[in-house]
Design a protein around this nucleic acid. Structure first.
Lengths: 325, 325
DNA sequence: CTGAAAGCGCTTACAG
DNA sequence: CTGAAAGCGCTTACAG
């Protein structure tokens, strides 16, 4: 910019005026400046501009894994809201590791992003307290923050699971298995709670051997569903509590002698399976959009108490959940 | 930082030394500084630091749509390579619109990202010439740049399509339909070329009515496949040239009287369909990793001629492509 | 209409 | 071991 000013024989501020299309520059002066800009190939450095401005016109999203459909749908929605505010988006995947989540979140804060959306991997977010205190709004998504009171946008996990299990019960099932994620994950806990609520409401007992929690690797889930669905105590229906579990279960259960299945989370080809897959669907795009709107509301000065927003789920009936015992 | 220096009764540079863990500070001095940092809740502003440094420790990825599986897998791979270099990642979706691609790419350049990876939406990238000239390396992914000579990482689209169609031919098909994307999209053109090559190599004629190109919306593709697969001239097999087309085709073709199908791009539940879906799979993670490595090689000073890297595809035989005519 | 000075929050290059 | 000065590339607040 200094070079442009020198080449055009004007002051720095005049170049700034032309670049920012401010009024009050003679057409001739502006022309000289523009010619110099062209000749020197000058492009304004937005990072420098923003340093002076005090904002960075960027927000960051820490998610579990951008390559999974849930995360990427969230990301797209956040990006769209951010774009409407001329904000660029950083994304980073924690890989479900608390350390990495923290590292990413703090790195983004150190860049002074205007705001941060976090899909929690860890369960202690007090490390963000100084950042929040110094004015960086943080919104949590999919799972609430641990140890701090902050905005959060969630799906109705318990309600959704309850509806899915009630659906199985309505179709005559009494022995229903629950295959969940690692205990300690908020969504897993909530979905299990929904399962137990539905069973209790129907007056059905829950045999603890029907409830499986653990890593969602294919082999382990395969083992679990095989155990649940064989022997004299076999369940006649399965509620698989997230998409990885559902996928693993479908892979390990032969289609011809598969129990009734309702999964949490929709899958792209779910309607083309035989039978088509009945699911409790979340709306990741709506979660992302809502979280981003919350964030920008905070940036616009909203100083209300932290909000907890819960989005409903949808039971999509397609066939696999309507199989008789 | 000024406040910390004042509070600790030291110079600015000493605070900088402590914050950056440089050597040559008395333990007592360092202690005083650390106490002041603690008391004031100071956090170094990395954006300001990077302005002085001349880098931004960030790279940007412009893709088609972060919410589709191809884009998000690419993104994850790029993120991992970038993280290994302590680089943060901006992502943005062009939505397949040339204008938006340009807007995003230039916005990232204005922020002075260290490097840029672009999945082209438009076919003229000369607008990036000044950016490249001023030292921002740009790597293209999935499709080559238009009008400029730059690094590009691609799948072997023609070779993959040729192998897929040859597979259908080997299973006895002679009338094979091709359902592709909009003409003008590089990958669509290449895949059609592979289709024609395979047909020609087998000495089979191509009836132009078997070749369909256009928007990949469900309704339009449904119409197209219905036309291709009915009547006296119906094809006995279909090569669907990308995942959206494949999905649309599967939705519109009744499973009981579906022709043989081979699709380009793998799908998550492809192996659980009846019959399971035979596909020509790309490796989006490998494309992303390779592009990112190329980018960091450029950043490390590699000044060689622009490279064109082509990754092989894999034919995954599962059933739908082995149906007899 | 135009520009010199100060400053955003840091680091670099020196000097002591 | 420590710090004052200059500067990264811009904008802000003034003055002319």
């Amino acid at each position: 910019m200094k070079d442009v000013a020198a080449a055009a024989g004007v002051g720095l501020k005049t170049v700034s005026r032309v670049v920012n299309e401010e009024s009050g520059v003679t057409p001739e002066t502006a022309g000289r400046v523009r010619a110099a800009i062209e000749a020197l190939g000058f492009r304004r450095n937005d990072s420098a501009r923003l340093l002076r401005t005090g904002r960075t016109a960027s927000v960051a999203l820490v998610l579990e894994d951008i390559s999974d459909p849930f995360s990427s749908a969230v990301s797209r929605a956040v990006e769209q809201v951010a774009a409407a505010q001329d904000c660029l988006l950083f994304t980073g995947s924690s890989g479900e590791q608390a350390d990495r989540e923290r590292e990413l979140a703090l790195a983004f804060c150190a860049r002074r992003v205007d705001g941060l959306i976090v899909v929690p991997a860890g369960d202690d977010h007090r490390y963000l307290l100084p950042e929040i205190a110094s004015g960086t709004p943080v919104v949590f998504l999919d799972r609430p923050a641990g140890g701090i009171d902050a905005d959060v946008v969630l799906s109705d996990n318990a309600g959704g699971a309850r509806a899915g299990v009630a659906h199985l019960i309505a179709h005559g099932h009494r022995r229903i298995g629950f295959v969940g994620d690692l205990p300690g994950i908020h969504t897993a806990v909530e979905r299990e709670r929904g399962y137990r609520t539905a069973m209790a409401e129907a007056g059905l007992p829950v045999d603890e051997r029907w409830v499986d929690r653990g890593p969602t690797g294919r082999a382990r889930v395969g083992e679990a569903v095989r155990r649940l669905t064989t022997g004299p105590d076999a369940v006649t229906a399965l509620f698989t509590a997230n998409n990885r579990v559902t996928l693993a279960a479908l892979h390990h259960l032969p289609a011809d002698r598969r129990p009734a299945v309702v999964g949490f989370d929709d899958l792209e080809l779910a309607d083309l399976l035989t039978p088509a897959l009945t699911v409790v669907a979340q709306n990741p795009a709506a979660l992302g959009a809502l979280a981003a709107q919350r964030l920008f509301a905070r940036l616009a000065g909203d100083a209300g108490a932290p909000a907890r927003l819960e989005l409903p789920t949808t039971l999509i009936v397609r066939g696999s959940g309507e199989v008789s015992p």
